[in-house]
Design a protein around this nucleic acid. Structure first.
Lengths: 206, 206
DNA sequence: AACGCTTACGTGAGTCGTAATAATC
DNA sequence: GATTATTACGACTCACGTAAGCGTT
């Protein structure tokens, strides 16, 4: 059985036309993409890309694979969205945390928008020591936190310099289910079940 | 992004109605299945199964998930089959190996059927030391080998006692792309690209 | 020299199996 | 007591990032 993440890498390489471009988009390194594609080609026994001087080109088998991969990825996203709709935000309490400067900039507006969207949900702003936000989410101390890009992943700091910079990395770790870009340096990380119901405001780059 | 293997476990649990039953079918242990489902429930934030005394029952969210998972799995299988058709067995050479008793029982008939199906492909029977078959396939020394169940995976020995015993385990390791049951104790393991083009004869249980 | 893909190697995350525990019939 | 799900723990596999190598423009 092939892997979903492998398909994600496959279509990104096809879209970008090069391994390095796809790596940048996916917040990975070139060698990682190279290995992913090489591994998939070895498993299916067919060459999917023809390596050309300026990047890669799809082979006939690659065209077929990319087409089917797009459908599978779309269905997987639909499944996740459908399951996400089962978690009700009708009532309950949400524990938020943010780093100091975000507490005075993004947080007030985000809380205001949340109150409008989900009137039944109360929030509390939890104070978290710097560098402890991710572990607090993993441990269940808070439900959603705003963290700096470097705190989320060192690689994002490097990735942000090459446009398009603030794409959502599609392969979250087991510890958090999803994260989302507010600005180049400010990302939101959610506990499973919350996901992307709290979106950045219009004043954030997207 | 959810994992394909997780979906495979999900539908198997739904079909069997219990974690232990699914574990047996998938050649896994009970705790492994339990962790897989628990992890998926944590990621999507919804409970997929209701634990009842005699096993588990699907929740409403679980019903939706299983339905979509079936479609995704079917499309993934279709993709692999489609890509497999690109590897031509029109010409070439196939290096086979088997353990001693299989050399005199299954192999002669299998080679005869291969000659009929793929007249352009020549074969050679490679002598492999006992216990070296899997590593030989991984290293590329041979293309297809018949191995004993215990050699393939210790767990299969335990699994074979509970019918239906000889189902194809759907989660091959990175080293080999697929394997297939000929009898309870005899399995074929293929190098990537060959896959299941060489099928067991009618004299084998299936 | 610059750009892009590949390979080698050490490291960290994730999953498995075994064993022990709890709960239900 | 038998069956089933969960938790703890050690071991192993896999994928990543860093660094070095190779070919093309």
């Amino acid at each position: 059985m092939l892997d979903i993440w492998t398909l994600r890498v496959l279509v990104e390489v096809a879209d970008q036309g090069s391994f390095s471009g796809a790596a940048s988009k996916l917040s990975m390194t070139q060698p990682a993409v190279s290995r992913q594609i090489a591994g998939m080609e070895r498993r299916v026994g067919v060459s999917l890309f023809r390596r050309v001087p300026r990047g890669v080109h799809l082979t006939t088998a690659g065209e077929v694979a990319v087409g089917q991969a797009r459908e599978i990825l779309a269905r997987m996203q639909a499944l996740e969205a459908r399951l996400g709709s089962f978690t009700d935000l009708e009532t309950g309490h949400l524990r938020l945390s943010a780093f100091p400067s975000a507490n005075t900039s993004f947080m007030p507006d985000a809380i205001r928008r949340m109150n409008e969207a989900y009137p039944g949900v109360t929030q509390s702003l939890v104070r978290i020591e710097p560098g402890e936000a991710l572990s607090a989410i993993r441990d269940g101390t808070v439900d959603l936190g705003l963290v700096t890009a470097w705190e989320l992943h060192p690689n994002l700091v490097a990735a942000k310099y090459s446009p398009p910079a603030w794409t959502i990395r599609s392969r979250p770790s087991k510890a958090w289910s999803s994260f989302r870009c507010w600005t180049k340096n400010c990302w939101s990380v959610c506990r499973p079940g919350i996901d992307s119901r709290i979106s950045p405001g219009s004043d954030c780059a997207s």
